[in-house]
């Protein structure tokens, strides 16, 4: 596997604020990398440093084979970047925007016309070339931005919340496009808030307060999460809220939340210990889990809630991120208290 992006201890400080704290990442060619985190967690700052438009405070790394600290201009030749906000010229037409950017990237001469036609075809804007960019819908604007970011055949494509504010159909179209590009060997670095988008990535990383809390392949993360906190239990019941209140009274559980039409249940650490670790035998684990599930059902029925099903499911990425965020918050609070002592 060829490495596309590799950074070590990449750090950015704005005055006293630590926007990105010692970021370590390795992303291979052709991978779809999801960069996740709440608002203000430093995602955009990190992406800007990787693109060479924001100077890191410290750290080192390579993007597309060039040094982040020393060769930002060389990096720029090999990457495409789509910023969070639409940042093409609204008073220029689709064709004019594309012509301008292709020329800045040095895509000129014979192949240029062909290439521009191809990218317009790819994003489905061939028939609107004379339309002003400002008059396009959100989804089409993003597709134009993608076309401009792709015109020079970059090896790495950075997309900062490309689907924010898009309708579901437009989102689907854009993601299909992105997977097509990944199939052609382009490395995609995507930030997003949407968990369903995160699940589509080959690799994800989660940042919180500028710090990388975890990274890896979603499947692997889920296995590790199960080892630590067990499976989640999904309960279909009516009425939902009453069910939630009822289960919150059960001492074996740590968390009960509504997830669509079901309750999503996380057990507490004692229960996890009891089920998974005391006797590591598969049969024993399954039996203990079944016991817990039946006690959940009993409790609900005692409280006059109609239970349709109780199943054991894998934790979602959201579950994992939430539990890591909680742990980090607890750690930070602890530090605060220590400071006051």
């Amino acid at each position: 596997m060829e490495v596309a992006i590799e950074v070590e201890n990449l750090t950015k400080k704005f005055g006293k604020l630590l926007a990105v704290d010692s970021l370590n990442l390795t992303i291979n060619k052709g991978e779809v990398f999801g960069f996740l985190g709440p608002n203000g967690s430093g995602k955009t700052t990190a992406i800007r440093m990787l693109c060479g438009i924001l100077e890191p405070t410290s750290g080192n790394g390579m993007v597309g084979g060039f040094d982040v600290m020393k060769e930002p201009e060389k990096i720029k030749c090999n990457i495409g970047y789509m910023s969070q906000k639409f940042s093409l010229y609204t008073d220029l037409t689709i064709q004019e925007n594309l012509d301008f950017y292709s020329s800045l990237y040095g895509v000129v001469g014979k192949g240029a016309r062909e290439r521009k036609k191809d990218v317009l075809e790819l994003v489905g804007l061939s028939r609107r070339v004379k339309q002003l960019a400002g008059n396009l819908s959100g989804g089409l604007k993003q597709r134009l931005a993608l076309a401009c970011a792709l015109v020079h055949r970059p090896k790495i494509l950075f997309l900062d919340e490309p689907t924010a504010g898009m309708d579901p159909v437009a989102r689907r179209i854009l993601w299909d496009l992105l997977f097509k590009l990944a199939g052609e060997g382009v490395c995609l670095f995507i930030t997003t808030h949407y968990m369903d988008e995160a699940e589509r990535c080959v690799k994800v990383a989660y940042v919180y307060y500028g710090k990388l809390l975890l990274s890896g392949r979603p499947e692997q993360m889920k296995q590790e999460e199960i080892a630590k906190t067990g499976h989640r239990i999904e309960v279909m019941c009516t009425p939902l809220v009453k069910g939630m209140m009822s289960l919150r009274g059960l001492p074996e559980l740590e968390e009960v939340t509504i997830f669509g039409e079901a309750l999503h249940v996380k057990m507490n650490s004692h229960t996890v210990q009891w089920i998974y670790q005391d006797h590591g035998h598969d049969f024993a684990v399954a039996a203990k889990r079944a016991y817990l599930m039946s006690s959940i059902k009993d409790k609900l029925e005692r409280d006059n809630v109609v239970v349709r099903s109780v199943t054991s499911v894998f934790p979602t990425l959201e579950d994992i991120f939430v539990s890591f965020t909680r742990a980090e918050d607890a750690k930070r609070e602890g530090q605060q208290i220590q400071k006051f002592d």
Binding site: K76, S83, G106
Partner: peptide, 13 residues
Amino acid sequence: ERGTFEQLIVTPV
């Protein structure tokens, strides 16, 4: 101000 600066400077121009 229009936010087009970021896209401009991310090119090798």
